[in-house]
Structures are given as C-alpha cells and as structure tokens.
C-alpha cells in the first residue's frame, strides 16, 4: 500500500532494469485475490443470467440444474463480496481521482484510437480503470444488498413483498451493469497487449509501464532505493 504520500505506487511495485525492463505490478496475494474475485463474478453472472431470461435458462445445467443455481448463486455472492472487499482495501487509494484523470477522460477518442502519446501521464491506474474500480465497488454493494433481500431461503421473513419486488428489479439492473462493466474490463485487458501478464505473472514490461502508466513508472524509478531489496526478494519469490 502506498503509504508515502505523493507516490502513486502500490505495495510490492518495483522496477528491475534490464532488457527489457520489468516492473512488478501485483503481488502473489493480490493476484490470488483477483482471480478468486474474477471466478466468482463469472460464476455469478452465468448462474444469475440463467434466471434472468428464459433463453438463458440452459446455463443452469452448468451448475447441476435450477435448484442448484438457486442454492449456490447467493453463496458465491458472499464469496465475491468478501473477495472484492480484499481488492478494495488493496487498491482504493491508488484509484482516488486525480487531476490528470479528467484530462485523460476528455481525450477518450485518443484512448480508443491508441494514441497513447497524446494522453497525460497517469499513475498506476488510468481514469478508465478507476471508473471500472468505483463502478464495480458500488455495484457489488448494491448487488449484495439487494441479493440478501431476495435470498428467499433465509431472509424472506425480514422484508415485505413490496420491498422484495424492488430488490429484484434493482438486482437485475445492477447485474446487467456489472456484467457490462466486466465486459469492458476484460476487453481492455485483451486489447492492451501485455496487460493480462500483470495479473498472471505479476509483472509488466518497462515499455508497457512507460506507454500506459508513465507517472507510475517515473515514481517507481525515483523512489528511494532503500526499498529495493524487499521488492527484489518479492520478485524472486513470485517467480
């Protein structure tokens, strides 16, 4: 966690000069946390969608049938909630909105056209990533809140039917939005080559950091070298 104010740098982030330069971006813990979240989100989307529209009911077969979907969907939701909470605590500070984020967002045309050289230098996360982060945070709170209200087996007695109707409407809208944000998130990772590696191996190339998160890279390089040994040890441990 970035404790030194001014640094837009996460825990375990460090630079390793070489050819190419590699930059540690995610610790093993962060990656495990991320993939638990990702898996539960995908399972939730699939199981939820099977109830969302009759044409998608066939998806319930993946879970062993409708009764299983009904049973496990909310429990996976609980896993997602706590797992995402972990990610939130890890990343929230780095996702605070900065002045350059407005400029970045205003030039979204250049973003989409891959004219990254025309964009302001950004820290560990760009405005798009921050939007994904905050919208997912909000949506997951809405989803767990509404999800508990419609969790018939255990919570039916605590709310009125009218409240449960609202909760169903809210839950399905929030789910649509969450799935759409997820699609955007995954697409960005596929489109920007070298990104998936950050969540798989934990590191990116220097060029990737230079091109997309130059402020982050500069801050990492400028960081007092006292932190180096720990970071290095982490890197070898992660590999």
């Amino acid at each position: 966690m970035s404790t030194d104010s001014g640094y837009d740098v996460g825990k375990g982030d460090s630079v390793h000069p070489g050819k190419p330069v590699t930059v540690d971006r995610y610790t093993g813990g962060a990656r495990i946390n991320h993939w638990i979240t990702a898996t539960s989100l995908v399972l939730l989307a699939l199981s939820g969608l099977s109830l969302f529209h009759p044409r998608l009911f066939f998806l319930s077969a993946l879970f062993g049938g409708g009764q299983w979907v009904r049973t496990i969907h909310p429990w996976i939701g609980v896993v997602l909630f706590f797992s995402f909470l972990g990610l939130f605590l890890r990343f929230w500070k780095l996702n605070l909105w900065k002045r350059e984020d407005g400029t970045w967002l205003a030039r979204v045309r250049d973003v989409l056209a891959a004219h990254d050289e025309r964009l302001p230098e950004v820290g560990k996360y760009n405005a798009g990533q921050k939007l994904v982060f905050w919208s997912m945070s909000t949506l997951i709170i809405v989803l767990i809140g509404s999800g508990i209200v419609i969790w018939n087996q255990y919570f039916a007695a605590y709310t009125t039917i009218e409240q449960q109707r609202w909760a169903l409407l809210v839950h399905s809208i929030a789910a649509i939005l969450a799935i759409s944000v997820w699609i955007t998130h995954v697409y960005a990772a596929i489109w920007v080559k070298g990104t998936i590696r950050a969540m798989v191996r934990g590191s990116v190339t220097g060029g990737w950091a230079w091109r997309y998160h130059r402020k982050w890279l500069r801050e990492l390089v400028a960081r007092p070298p006292t932190k180096e040994p720990t970071a290095d040890r982490k890197r070898t441990a992660a590999e």
Partner: peptide, 14 residues
C-alpha cells in the same frame, strides 16, 4: 494496442 520498441527503449533509458 501494442507496446512499441521505442516504448521499451524509453523505459530502459529511464
């Protein structure tokens, strides 16, 4: 959207 050779070189210079 790919990282170019120049990006890598810039990172090495930095």
């Amino acid at each position: 959207n790919r990282v170019s050779e120049e990006d890598e070189e810039a990172a090495q210079r930095l």
